[in-house]
Design a protein around this nucleic acid. Sequence first.
DNA 1: TTGAAAGCGCTAACAC
DNA 2: GTGTTAGCGCTTTCAA
Lengths: 332, 332
Amino acid sequence: MAKQTITIYDVAREAGVSMATVSRVVNGNPNVKPSTRKKVSDVIEKLNYRPNAVARGLASKKTTTVGVILPSVTNLFFAQLARGIDDIALMYKYNIILANSDESKEKEIQVFNTMLDNQVDGIVFMAENVTDSIKREIERTNTPVVFAGTANDIEDAYSVNIDMIAAYHDATSNLLTHKKRVALVTGRPHILLSTQQVEGYKRALSEHQVDFDDSLLIQGSLTYKDASNIVEQLLQAKADAAIIKDDALASAVMSELLDRGIQVPEDFEIISNDNSLISEIVRPALSSIQQPLYDIGAVAMRLLTKVMNNEEVDERRVNLPHKIKHRKTTEE
Amino acid sequence: MAKQTITIYDVAREAGVSMATVSRVVNGNPNVKPSTRKKVSDVIEKLNYRPNAVARGLASKKTTTVGVILPSVTNLFFAQLARGIDDIALMYKYNIILANSDESKEKEIQVFNTMLDNQVDGIVFMAENVTDSIKREIERTNTPVVFAGTANDIEDAYSVNIDMIAAYHDATSNLLTHKKRVALVTGRPHILLSTQQVEGYKRALSEHQVDFDDSLLIQGSLTYKDASNIVEQLLQAKADAAIIKDDALASAVMSELLDRGIQVPEDFEIISNDNSLISEIVRPALSSIQQPLYDIGAVAMRLLTKVMNNEEVDERRVNLPHKIKHRKTTEE
DNA sequence: TTGAAAGCGCTAACAC
DNA sequence: GTGTTAGCGCTTTCAA
């Protein structure tokens, strides 16, 4: 037997007031006499009334929920960002709809639109890169969108990130103090993120007066399963150090190197990029570019709350500080 | 300037039909003449009409969204489950609201109720253990709930899992073929999951005629940061093998062991339990209990769709098969 | 401080 | 096949 859903009308009747009054107490509207507030509250308690968020959403045109789109929950990089988003959302009493895009650009657009259908008040968007089609969707809607940890060059976009060029510049410079042939292993070429990383890398190179060597640049949709091939290329190119795009890949590469009797960091230094759990667990522990992942998520969500409330925001685009965390795969 | 939201009414007027007809074509109701279907579809296209899911939810009392509760997105174990859930939800056209409980039992109840407020059609619930208070909430609602990968002893609950007792029995037996002093590192005592794991462990022990030794049982809210303490205890107890509750902890323990010059697997064998990415990446690669995580999630979601549609389900409680995956931390 | 009433955008009988 | 209409449960003017 289905339990009866109890509505605002039931509460009103039972308390001997109008629906409007019940609505007011539920929403903390101050214009209610304390005694009637008490009376209504008691009835709410007694009847165990819970407002229907869907009806509320329809009537008020606000759902107090925000959508979060990320490539994959199993990707620790984005999962960390999600934590920051989640905490701040909770703090500002927004609900979260989290959706995987599964790294598929079609699904990305689909979940984006599903969120709009569900009348989310705003969206935090994360991806490895921003395609033109998703750009178009974002422009078409009035729903505010902020990018978190996602390279983008959209003029007036809300975005929080680190200065990726500077980060890769720093990592490269670090490596260049002990090593001669520093390789760079990034994601697919032509996407903005890779472009930025390569740019930082090249800047450091030229500062140190070393010529860019094409064979030291390895790019692609690489996962840890490609480690063996990558090591092959690295060795061929006589690399003695590398910056590697994520922790899983970096540790796989390191293991492969170790298996071949190459000492890390003596013969080969590594700087990774996620600074996830993995970097601490493997031996030797991975030195890593340290992005304030949680903070990026948190700041992005905070920014979104401002936009949703039409508050003034001074900077649409914020860069948070990064560091190079030296663990055991770089020399002192 | 806000773009005008266009409604079903606009489409109806423009197409010269009634709202009901528009509703019918939007919902694929067959009772529409092809020619008018075409006409309406064209207008929908032209006006770029998108149905408001909130209004639909209110009118139909179905939101076609399901809630997914998990302890943490950064926990790879649950993230894997979430993937399976997500894929099947997509297949059956359900939207997902995913919420972190942050391993807090209060937040767990809060997100549970928020989901009910939002009129989800069903919930997939994941946690390390099921408290009485969440049990009570689940009983209070008519919204179907299925447990995925979470130990529970609720009589008539929908639940998909592995046979944890058997899994730990198998792991222990395996270890016992080469080693004498097999330790067990589990989560907090007194929760059902740990109880099951200990039971499987003890069964194998007695089958192999070895007495249970209290000092070989290490329990608590352990994370990889506790590795050093755990190794201390392990060594003190003269353990030469261990089953360890998750990959992060297992690899941290292994690193600690290695640091102390103890050979794995020669001097010490390890079986881990998540079978995540981490187990493949670390060296030596972790042998592990292999749970069909993705499948557990997928089957749970499939089960939920049946319950939501009032379809017959023959088994409320399903156990999926597990395996012991031998990598490099166990002897052949 | 409170209530009446008109929607929010859609679905689902029911009638034609 | 198609249209009419009464809600779904709530918020929000507006008036009192």
